[in-house]
């Protein structure tokens, strides 16, 4: 059995909660230790599918950009089409995030144009973009607790 990054992070959370926390006397530091445990838990929850979620999201954005390129005209249409045909530059999280930012910027631009009622069937495009954004938010949602500072 191989020790994964996720399991390692969870064992550190256990250590902070069960061994380190009870030994810390200063209230400020004790609270910081608890929050550090929370932060590591979130990191553990993110680590396994970090690349997959970004690859899938970039593909989903490219699909909507392709639809938008048909709906819109001119230079923007050409840039959207080029982006829709692009591929991720690598599988490092930093590379995927940079590409994600680039694609999202184009999505924001297309969304603004659709909201102004420009191009063919702008309402359809507007609805498609909002649907995509809601799906992205749901997929990226953290899974472990309802409130960020909840106990």
């Amino acid at each position: 059995m191989r020790l994964t990054i996720e399991a390692s992070l969870r064992r550190i959370v256990d250590l902070l909660r069960d061994e380190v926390g009870p030994e810390v006397q200063t209230p400020f530091l004790a609270q910081s230790v608890r929050m550090a445990g929370g932060l590591l838990t979130i990191c553990a929850n993110w680590v396994d599918d970090a690349a997959a979620i970004r690859v899938e999201e970039n593909a989903a954005i490219r699909k909507v950009l392709a639809e938008a390129s048909v709906s819109l005209d001119g230079d923007l249409s050409a840039r959207l089409r080029a982006a829709s045909l692009s591929s991720d530059p690598g599988l490092r999280i930093s590379q995927l995030d940079a590409e994600n930012h680039r694609l999202r910027m184009l999505l924001v631009e297309a969304h603004g144009v659709a909201e102004r009622g420009e191009g063919a069937s702008p309402q359809v495009l507007d609805a498609a973009i909002w649907r995509l954004l809601e799906e992205i938010e749901l997929k990226r949602a953290q899974r472990e607790q309802a409130h960020p500072y909840g106990q």
Binding site: D97, N100, L107, H111, G112, E115, I129, E137
Partner: peptide, 11 residues
């Protein structure tokens, strides 16, 4: 990484 939901709200 830009958040298009927030930008939509600003618009």
């Amino acid at each position: 990484v830009i958040e298009p939901i927030v930008r939509g709200a600003i618009r």
